[in-house]
Design a protein around this nucleic acid. Structure first.
Lengths: 65, 65
DNA sequence: GACATTTGTTAAATATTGTTTACATTTGTC
DNA sequence: GACAAATGTAAACAATATTTAACAAATGTC
């Protein structure tokens, strides 16, 4: 799973901590998702996308196995 | 999280077993998601949406807490 | 009504994801 | 270079997703 959270976050000038607070997860969780250590849960993905005013497909890109 | 997998599945005349196989999860997982027992992972949500030719937002509806 | 198919459900076990804590590294500013 | 802010990372744990197996209930067909 790829994502462009880093760019979207930069656009809005939010730190990982800002985003974490807005989304309701820990800063380390945002960091891990951003660094693509693991995928967020579907609810978390929805909250992230919504926060940026984007669809999930615009934020995350799934590459078929 | 709400979803309309049941209707989409009916449109395509797929059984839960058919969908499970196409998506790559167990039939019970499809049943549980369909009955909204729990949310799928993000990759599974992507595969389900893709299979129906829909976006995740068209298949799943997230209601803010 | 017998039969096959589909769906619902439950329990236990496993895998994956999210949180916390703590510390290290990087980056920017003075 | 000192300092603060931001980011990276890791281990332990908590929470959730998924599988497997088994059986019950519903549905459709003959």
């Amino acid at each position: 799973m790829k994502n462009n959270i880093r760019d979207l976050r930069a656009e809005k000038q939010l730190t990982q901590g800002d985003l974490a607070e807005a989304v309701g997860v820990s800063r380390q969780t945002i960091n891990a998702i951003e660094k693509e250590k693991f995928d967020p849960s579907l609810p978390t993905a929805f909250r992230i996308a919504r926060l940026f005013g984007r669809t999930i497909e615009e934020v995350f890109r799934y590459e078929e196995v």
